[in-house]
Design a protein around this nucleic acid. Structure first.
Lengths: 334, 334
DNA sequence: TCGTCTGGGTACATCGTTGCAGAAAGCGGA
DNA sequence: TCCGCTTTCTGCAACGATGTACCCAGACGA
């Protein structure tokens, strides 16, 4: 079978523990002994058994990532970056899809998934702050995104309100006055939809434009959700000269439906999104949107989580990181 | 700390091994005893320690998935489906990104990644058949995609040649005669690019249209690759009335560039892709493409791999599965 | 000379399971 | 009554690493 530490010990003529000490950079080892062990390791092609190490040490060097669905471009891009960053620090990422369902989020938080990982990057969609606080285990947990804002948690997010304000202000500056919002309900005020809607309202207020609840259309945050929402809006006869999709998928779906119905983008209706997924740049017309600083989100969240795991970060209160955004003005809303 | 089997045994008044037997559905246990154990498990909230189980049994119930980059939409969608299917059979999927680099593919094939998983779903991009055959370990391995076709391996793929032929035939039937291909070199004949190019050539031959190597443009299989390739084509002054992107990302990038340059799609140039990622349906105009039966690919490959792992599939020769495709005729090439 | 300290190494228990061997009890057949 | 077989359950070793305790040789000071 596979080469074990015992085989190495025998080959090097030392004890099992000495091999272990060499591998763990134990301080007091004679260079000659260390070299013998290293030679034996090289010769036999020994590789540590991670399962055994994990059982004994209680650490797996795996991070859990819980998100709704990996096929959502934003999550796919985020997962890819998280993996790269984690890998540089010697950790792997194990992904769990929750489908935004409560039962799945709970089992990711508590079940065997938790066991396999040293810490969790969690995007709660169905679960509220109290539910998470109640079911969180003892292992470190970092919340990604803005659905939960609570001092009990470590959190990495972007400036949702500010970004939505800036984007809306840009549409207003372009002369748009009736800006439909897709992906929220008029009464939302928390979570990604709520925060982004708040930003929208702030920009309207600053420009002295009235808020019209009939322009706020709920939708699933997917391309088809955006398409059907804007379809309903057109059918209802509502007047609007811009569409703000609360993420890029919504905006792209909406833009597609507008074009099919013969509405010219941006001449008749401007369209803007949120997230700056790669696809946005290549849409026709290319999509105006907000880049959430995903690289920084990935780096900061991995860093925070690993610091917690390795005990470097010891604040009692949750650490909240807010990453800067950048407006990407493109052809759909110049 | 966590509840162990020992705690359960004590609570139920039986031996450790009996608890283990109950959990592993051992045949000869009195119903009453079994019930006592199950009650104790429920009361204590016991959950098996997967690491310990894995060390002892040598199985982790994890499948490895090696692909170039999770942020590529096709891979993201595939990964998402594979996870769902695997989960239904009680397995998890651990993803490793290779960036299509040889060193990374090798380490995924041999290193600690391999150790953590019971079997591998492998998309070789840098490594050739011999290299893989030489470095494959003893654990089951299923090749995904068509880069390697070799009787030594289990393989799940789609009918690349047939699909490319059908798609090209559709373009020809629409009156297009100068169909540019993006994402291959004229001399390619193996791997995804080669096979799809072969299909293209077959369709041309069947229609009596000459093959023009100057219409074949190599490119990285990404949106920006498609954009710059079609840009070069336009700059070169080549005449063409259709573009066949060897995957959707290429086609979408190409379509974007054409539109920016004022070329009307599909009136001036028709565009077709390959993969039918979700984005294709919502592009403007919506993209004509080939749906590779991704659901079936996911199901068949997981099934094959798990059967190998659990010893059900015992053929000596590699099993080759070819999944059916479907043409999706949309607005970009009606 | 003796006791103490320290660097360098070893032996054994341990993490939480499962495999193997076997023990105890019940039962039928000769 | 005894034997052999099945059913039900138990104890111990083992998977491959790490932590703890300890041992020994040499240096050092008194």
């Amino acid at each position: 079978m596979a080469v074990t530490m015992n085989d190495v010990a025998r080959a090097a003529g030392v004890s099992l523990k000495t091999v272990s000490n060499v591998l763990n950079d134990y301080e007091f080892i004679r260079p000659a002994t260390k070299q013998k062990v290293l030679d034996a390791i090289a010769e036999l092609g020994y590789e540590a058994n991670l399962t055994a190490r994990s059982l004994r040490s209680g650490k797996s060097r795996m991070l859990g990532l819980v998100l709704s669905d990996l096929s959502v471009p934003y999550y796919a891009e985020l997962a890819s970056r998280l993996m790269t960053v984690a890998s540089a620090r010697g950790y792997r990422v194990l992904v769990e899809q929750s489908a935004a369902e409560e039962a799945n989020e709970l089992s990711a938080l508590q079940g065997t998934f938790r066991q396999l990982t040293d810490g969790l990057l969690f995007t709660p969609l169905a679960l509220g702050a109290d539910a998470v606080a109640h079911r969180r285990g003892s292992k470190p947990l970092v919340i990604l995104g803005e659905h939960i804002e609570d001092p009990r948690f470590d959190l990495v997010t972007m400036k949702n309100v500010g970004a939505a304000t800036a984007l809306t202000a840009h549409l207003l500056a372009g002369g748009r006055r009736r800006i439909a919002v897709i992906g929220a309900s008029a009464e939302d005020s928390a979570g990604s939809p709520g925060l982004r809607l708040n930003g929208y309202r702030e920009a309207l207020a600053a420009a002295g434009v009235d808020f019209d609840p009939s322009l706020i259309v709920p939708a699933e945050w997917r391309r088809d959700g955006g398409a059907s929402a804007v379809g309903k809006l057109l059918d209802s006869g509502a007047e609007f000269d811009a569409v703000f999709g609360l993420n890029d998928a919504l905006a792209l779906g909406a833009m597609h439906e507008l074009q099919i119905r013969g509405v010219n983008v941006p001449a008749d209706v401007a369209v803007a999104g949120f997230d700056d997924i790669d696809e946005a740049r290549f849409a026709s017309p290319s999509l105006t949107t907000v880049a959430p600083g995903m690289g920084e989100i990935a780096e900061r969240s991995i860093e925070l989580l690993i610091d917690r795991i390795e005990g470097a970060e010891t604040a009692d209160e949750g650490v909240h990181v807010e990453v800067e955004f950048e407006l990407r003005i493109r052809a759909s809303a110049p």
